[in-house]
């Protein structure tokens, strides 16, 4: 059943991907990318990777569409025809694809218990997590503790990406993402948006609440800082869409976003440094408390909070940067 579902979803995924590449209408491409993301999340879900699926859902459903549209507002709506010959790229791609397909023949079958990935460290993670960290979601344990160093790297990748976008787009004056001409603002538009405004405002507290749940329930169910950050950012973006950028920035000003981005990344690093000062290795949370299990749990909660802060801050900064640029 898993195989059937996965094959069906992957087939639709391939069709959508080909359509995205073929279309010249960039707006249609953005819409199809929305479908692509939904299919991808469903696929991850079918393969039992709920944490990854939740990330894809949190980012793909709202934020990436909004950011793509923000980019579209800055460029043309159609892709330009390129006159170059496409044969050489096609040959390269075909050779690469054939190599990758050939390489998959050596891969063990899906779910094969003798596959190296199930023999190497995975059994150790599964058997030792209850004793060492004592949380039900092993993914969070791997992400936060065993592989804490890699996750720190990811946070800094997000951090760097945010800084890079801010450098490129420059955060000038605040502006509306999809600006209306001023005289239309008083007459048209908003009056017709009464129902979305009421429903949207009703949903915002639930979105933020759900984000906090994902943040703090990550040790027990699917979730964690990355997903929670994206969901909370989506809630604030919804507010910005309904009420305008100025009011969203009044609620959560750019200076606060900067504090969140830098503070989140710093919090993560500081936890590691404190571990070293208390006599352990970098990011070895066992020393944080007298009881090593409690120390591990405390460490994971702290670094997840850092991740959540940094991701929310970066996503919202990028959103505001696009908005400021679209108005200028």
């Amino acid at each position: 059943m898993t195989i059937l579902l996965a094959v069906f979803l992957l087939t639709m995924l391939v069709i959508t991907a080909v359509a995205i590449v073929r279309t010249r209408d960039l707006f249609a491409a953005v819409m199809l990318l929305g479908i692509f993301s939904l299919l991808m999340a469903a696929n991850f879900f079918v393969l039992d990777a709920a944490d990854v699926a939740l990330t894809e859902a949190a980012v793909g459903a709202g934020i990436s569409t909004v950011l793509f549209l923000g980019a579209l507002a800055l460029t043309a709506a159609r892709e330009r025809e390129s006159g170059d010959s496409r044969w050489l790229p096609l040959v390269v791609v075909v050779i690469m694809a054939a190599t990758v397909v050939y390489a998959t023949f050596d891969k063990p079958a899906l779910g094969d218990p003798n596959a190296p990935v199930h023999q190497h460290v995975a059994p150790w993670y599964l058997s030792e997590t209850p004793r060492l960290i004592d949380i039900p979601n092993v993914v969070t344990a791997v992400l936060g503790s065993y592989r804490g160093y890699d996750t720190l790297g990811e946070v800094f990748v997000v951090f760097t990406a945010g800084i890079a976008v801010l450098f490129l787009l420059g955060s000038g004056r605040p502006g509306e993402l999809f600006s209306r001409p001023p005289d239309e603002l008083s007459t048209g538009g908003l009056k017709h948006h009464l129902i979305p405004r009421v429903v949207g405002k009703l949903l915002i507290p639930f979105i933020i609440l759900f984000g906090l749940y994902v943040q703090f329930h990550g040790e027990y169910g699917p979730g964690g800082g990355f997903q929670a950050g994206a969901i909370i950012a989506a809630g604030v973006i919804l507010y910005a869409l309904l009420e305008g950028e100025t009011r969203a920035l009044a609620a959560l000003p750019e200076s606060a976003l900067k504090v969140m981005v830098i503070g989140g990344a710093l919090l993560y690093t500081l936890v590691g440094v404190v571990c070293m000062l208390m006599g352990g290795n970098f990011l070895d949370y066992s020393v944080l408390s007298t009881n090593s299990v409690a120390g591990q749990q405390l460490g994971i909660i702290l670094i997840e909070a850092g991740v959540g802060l940094a991701v929310t801050g970066v996503l919202l900064s990028i959103f505001h940067a696009f908005a400021a640029r679209a108005t200028a």
């Binding site: 017709h192 948006h193 129902i195 979305p196 429903v199 949207g200 009703l202 949903l203 639930f206």
Partner: peptide, 20 residues
């Protein structure tokens, strides 16, 4: 509950935008 709130709203917004 959330689906019953959001999906008619987005249908309404879509129809409204298309009509305008």
């Amino acid at each position: 509950l959330f689906l019953l709130l959001t999906s008619p709203t987005s249908s309404y917004a879509l129809a409204n935008a298309a009509l305008l």
